[in-house]
Write a protein that binds this DNA or RNA. Structure first.
Lengths: 203, 203
DNA sequence: GTCTATACAAAGATAGAC
DNA sequence: GTCTATCTTTGTATAGAC
């Protein structure tokens, strides 16, 4: 009698294709990926990619939109929270991005790279455009540092957190650290970076 | 009698192809670029690409190696200078990268992206591997901050400088600034970033 | 050295059988 | 809904004329 009531199956063919597409697109980029790669990764016939998503481009749009949302749109509630301090917001952004990227390390490089390769499509992906510079965070920053554009703060925080993930391969090589040790370094940055920003705000 | 003595012509067909390849590869990435794109950009027949460089892959290797050198290897003399202070080194790195990227804004995203897409070829491109962590700069940093891995400093500095160039399109959009204004912001960072790092070293 | 023409392979997409 | 087979386009590379 405890029958499941029509749960969306996460192992439906459509979902399998989407998951596979996300993985392969992030790894190889749009033009480096063939629809056959995706079909192979999903373990299904290559004709089904077109059957479910009409074209490679449409499937890519879906994946890309999701990653842009994860990277940018989801921090909007944080930066527009009226009840938190500036320092709390920064810490929250740092913690969020670190958590996301530890789970899916490739997305920041993927998103920025594809936006660079296809700037004419940026409008399709980015919706919350002026979200950052008109945010509560920007207003709070201006009260402390009226001479500095708030975008400088955003770029600084994001650069310090995201960049090590984007260049991980290089940095891990030059430092000789293994995966576990480097992960520890990345987590250490969730404390190191706020300390730096604190100095920026007080000085 | 004042005859030029065999100057390498920068407008030779071979050079035109290399210049075109650099431009197109940086714009579209390896797999997004066709040899016809390169030939068109160079204004020559597409057969000549293979004639001069044997294959797309070999041509790419040449371009890529050059960009990696520009981005990483060329700062080695700076970080290994025995006569400069830590703060001077950091300022020099910042000034160098800012200058390079203002002239050629795409290279950091290009290099990191291709290294990510083709990690198995990283050995071909990166030679000065342990250069950073065994540098004079690393030694000097350890004297001030023995508890922090010097790679944290490197990642922080590079992240703060390079990241705004990598996400320029996004940030310019969210800030509503035009090209000139955003360039000014980028230059402002050559002073803003060292001030932050100073706080990191003193605290 | 440079061009035209073309061979050859890879990739996106569709038709039609099951 | 899923498969096989195939059409078409695009892209890499080479042969051969000039």
């Amino acid at each position: 009698m405890s029958k499941q009531i029509k749960v969306q199956p996460d192992d439906s063919t459509e979902q399998k294709i989407k998951n596979a597409a996300q993985k392969v697109f992030i790894q190889k980029g749009y033009s480096g990926t063939s629809t056959r790669d995706i079909a192979d990764e999903a373990g299904i016939n290559n004709a089904l990619v077109n059957y479910y998503f009409r074209s490679k481009e449409k499937l890519f749009d879906i994946v890309m939109k999701e990653q842009v949302t994860t990277l940018f749109d989801k921090i909007l509630p944080i930066v527009n929270n009226e009840t938190t301090t500036l320092a709390q917001k920064i810490q929250a952004i740092i913690d969020y991005h670190t958590e996301v990227l530890l789970a899916q390390p490739g997305i920041s490089l993927f998103v920025l790279s594809e936006l660079h390769n296809q700037p004419e499509r940026i409008a399709i992906y980015m919706q919350a455009n002026r979200g950052l510079s008109r945010s509560v965070l920007a207003r709070q920053f201006k009260e402390v540092k009226p001479d500095i554009n708030p975008i400088q703060l955003i770029m600084t925080v994001m650069g310090m957190i995201l960049f090590p993930f984007m260049g991980r391969y290089v940095f891990q090589r030059t430092s000789g650290l293994d995966n576990k040790e480097f992960d520890a370094l990345l987590k250490e940055r969730t404390k190191l970076v706020p300390a730096l920003i604190k100095a920026m705000l007080e000085d």
